[in-house]
Write a protein that binds this DNA or RNA. Structure first.
Length: 785
DNA sequence: GAGTTTGAAACT
DNA sequence: CAGTTTCAAACTC
């Protein structure tokens, strides 16, 4: 790490800051003065600016958050401070962080403020998280830019922040905490950049991360403010010393830790979902394959540590992991920095922008390999939504859209994410949620091959990776079957793809719209307005629909606290089991086909149903047992559902694993959901499990507090978050009873459903759709009036 | 992939 | 609230 001398010095300095001696010292060292006072202030100002945007824009997709969360988690570990000497720089960063986080982490700040060296432990953790955030945020910002929808930008930051905050770790960031972080994000981001710059030189491997991260960061900087970019440049240049130190430090670190760090990164990337880009890059086969396992373990360790937030041992572990992670970040940065440096050397003036561009190009290149290339930035930029987060992510097709997709993607993290997912979940849980949303897709995208559950992947990927189509490509029937199975269950919102021709995707006919997600590439819709670009229109339309039917976007299937509406349960009676909110009106399908929303949702028909000849395998209207398995159709259906459920479970599991967030998903998501909490959810589906309990409610609370919500997309965030919840639900359902999940997710709003809607919809589990629906409910909650 | 069926959503 | 129309998913071939 750093030399003790430095630490001591820093400590002493902190002690004497107020003292004349301190002042004198400051005067002696030019660096110091700048950092402590000016920087922090600047950051603060920045931070302030940023926060509003975040909160303001609903869009911020959960996805983004999820992304952040994912990344953050991994990143969090690094110890920038250690390097120190940079004490000044670090200190400044810390200060800024401290300032930002003071509300939350007064102690840490105090430590930091008082003694840099001392503070390092806690501060390091926070910083790491912050760093992560920073990296993440930048990407998001880029995404926004890409998206081109100005409105999104602000939200993104906020979302990101939120997500970041949670992820980092602190295990239980309250909504308020998240908000604060959000505010501080901008500042932190700067600080992180500095740190990163310092770190960069060291970085070796993880080019992918680097590229992805750096470019994003650059973009962020650029977008945010030219001045910042310049500042970054300066930082980048400066780092050499710090970087050396870091490198030294890194060398000191155990190899295992380093690996962990790498892994962590990978995970993060995966987890981040939203940031698919990075994740993808990172997830590249070589790295991911080897590292994933370790990363998982590491993540778990980290998460646990963070969750516990216990000082010593935890701190150490965290610090180690963070360091490793950070290192990864640094490495990325390093690469970028090096590139930049070279560039800068050649072209001092434009170096930053150029470097950014280059980085971007690199990123794209990297991305392209797995992804289509476009997606991340160009396309996905997304944003966020959530779904993009799941939302956030998803952001649609073009850039914005993609972002949405990303959100979804988030919900569906690639296989790698899946692997990691469990660990991520833990971490995400801290976060949120997330990615939500949602994030499902992302993971899948990343690893198309991952699960059989592809459908989810399809959904998620649509934007970037394998679209559902691609997936189908393998074999039409299989695809269809798979899709059906997967989708059936719920298909999932994240994955949803519509084929609207006349509704412009602004009516409930559109599954995407109904799910509260933006349409993405995979969609075959025509004249689609359900895109980030038309956010206003979407929101307005949504409001109209909600005005007509407040529950229009609420999950159609409501579950009671009890777990999934199992076939065995009495459909009618069971309050416990899930029920369709409105009930179906089937006349010819006997409630044995997906035409039936109850069946599609995996729930039995209830009294509220007006169906004729109900044979719903999940539960007949008349109360006859869910025969499901019994009857042929039922069998088929049941099998189908069972399969679907299984698939869902798998997907869920995956998603959960994937998620952070994500919305999600996810989704995207993630996601998405997807945001603070949402974001987590989105990102880490993994978090979902937690999210459900934690993030879910927390997210809502946060979101509500934030006042978010307007847009679907904000919803998208919700999606992500929701997805997370769902994910969690699913997870719970899988492992444990869904009930828990339900309870968590629902916030009361959804409750609307006749049955107890405790949870979002079970069906959702089966399908992402459900999740989405649930998500929508959130929006509804946030009254748009 | 095109066409049909189905039931929800939207409209009156 | 009921009836009709519109719509897009689900399904079939």
């Amino acid at each position: 790490m750093d030399t003790p001398d430095r630490n001591q010095i820093s400590a002493t300095l902190s002690k004497f800051e107020d003292s004349p001696v301190f002042n004198y010292i400051n005067s002696l060292s030019p660096i110091k003065p700048v950092k402590s006072v000016p920087i922090s202030q600047t950051f603060n100002s920045l931070s302030f600016s940023s926060p509003p945007s975040v909160f303001t824009s609903p869009h911020v997709s959960c996805l983004k958050e999820s992304r952040f969360l994912r990344r953050h988690i991994p990143v969090a570990t690094s110890k920038p401070k250690v390097s120190s000497e940079d004490v000044n720089k670090v200190h400044t960063s810390e200060e800024t962080l401290a300032d930002s986080t003071r509300a939350h982490h007064n102690p840490s700040k105090l430590q930091e403020n008082t003694g840099k060296g001392i503070s390092v432990g806690d501060a390091s953790v926070e910083l790491s998280s912050e760093h992560i955030k920073f990296s993440v945020e930048q990407p998001q910002a880029l995404n926004y830019n890409n998206c081109g929808s100005p409105g999104y930008d602000p939200p993104l930051c906020g979302d990101e922040d939120n997500t970041l905050l949670e992820l980092p770790g602190e295990a239980a960031p309250g909504a308020g905490y998240v908000q604060e972080k959000c505010k501080t994000d901008s500042v932190e981001g700067e600080v992180h950049l500095q740190e990163i710059c310092q770190m960069e030189p060291k970085s070796e491997g993880s080019d992918c991360y680097w590229d992805s991260l750096i470019p994003d960061g650059l973009d962020m900087l650029i977008f945010n403010s030219p001045g910042e970019a310049e500042a970054l440049k300066g930082l980048m240049h400066k780092p050499s010393d710090s970087s050396k130190r870091l490198s030294d430090f890194m060398s000191l670190l155990p190899l295992s830790t380093i690996h962990n760090g790498r892994k962590m990164h990978i995970v993060d990337s995966v987890a981040s979902g939203s940031e698919h880009e990075i994740g993808d890059h990172c997830s590249e086969p070589t790295i991911t394959a080897t590292n994933t396992d370790q990363t998982q373990d590491n993540l778990a360790n980290v998460a646990l540590v963070t969750s516990n937030s216990n000082e010593n041992a935890n701190d150490q572990l965290v610090s180690v992991t963070h360091r490793a992670i950070r290192r990864r970040c640094l490495d990325f940065e390093m690469v970028n920095v090096q590139r930049k440096n070279t560039d800068d050397n050649s072209n001092p003036g434009s170096s930053a922008s150029e470097s950014d561009e280059r980085n971007v190009a690199n990123d794209k290149q990297l991305l392209p390999a797995k992804r289509n290339g476009n997606f991340q930035r160009g396309i996905l930029p997304g944003i966020g939504l959530h779904l993009n987060a799941l939302a956030a992510l998803k952001e649609y097709k073009g850039i914005q859209i993609e972002s949405l997709s990303s959100g979804r993607q988030l919900s569906l993290p690639s296989s790698t994410s899946l692997q990691i997912s469990t660990s991520l979940q833990i971490s995400t849980f801290q976060e949120h949620q997330h990615l939500a949303l949602v994030p499902v897709s992302s993971e899948r995208e990343l690893d198309p091959s991952d699960n059989g559950l592809l459908p989810a992947e399809d959904c998620s990927q649509p934007s970037v990776y394998m679209t559902g189509e691609d997936f189908n490509m393998n074999s039409p029937r299989k695809k269809k079957q798979v899709q059906r199975k997967v989708e059936t269950p719920g298909e999932t919102e994240g994955c949803k793809r519509c084929n609207c021709k006349k509704s412009k995707c602004l009516k409930l006919y559109c599954e995407c719209f109904a799910a509260g997600v933006y349409c993405i590439e995979p969609c075959s819709c025509q004249d689609c307005f359900n895109k980030p670009v038309h956010e206003d229109t979407v929101l307005q339309t949504r409001k109209q629909i909600e005005s007509r039917n407040p529950l229009a976007f609420a999950p159609k299937v409501i579950r009671n606290s009890d777990s999934v509406p199992e076939i065995g349960d009495d459909p009618n009676k069971t309050p416990a089991s899930a029920r369709h909110k409105r009930g179906c009106n089937c006349k010819k399908s006997s409630c044995l086909k997906k035409y039936c929303e109850c069946y599609q949702g995996g729930v039995g028909c209830s009294i509220s149903c007006r169906c004729e000849g109900c044979k719903n395998a999940f539960g007949r209207k008349d109360g006859s047992a869910p025969v499901g398995i019994e009857t042929e159709p039922e069998e088929t259906e049941a099998s189908g559902k069972g399969v679907a459920q299984k698939a869902l479970q798998k997907t869920e599991i995956q998603s959960t694993e994937d998620h952070p967030d994500s919305a999600t998903v996810s989704t995207p998501l993630r996601l998405s959901r997807p945001l603070l909490p949402l974001p987590f959810s989105s990102k880490g589906k993994p978090p979902r499990s937690f999210v459900t309990t934690i993030s879910g409610s927390a997210l809502f609370a946060t979101s509500q507090k934030l006042g978010k919500p307007n847009s679907l997309w904000s919803q998208s965030k919700h999606f992500q978050t929701v997805p997370d919840d769902e994910m969690s639900d699913i997870l719970l359902g899988d492992t444990s009873p869904i009930t828990c999940i339900k309870t968590s997710s629902p916030n009361g709003k959804r409750i609307s459903s006749p049955n107890c809607d405790l949870g979002s919809s079970p069906s959702r589990r089966g399908g992402r759709k459900l999740i989405l629906q649930s998500i929508p409910s959130f929006p509804s909650l946030t009254p748009h009036p």
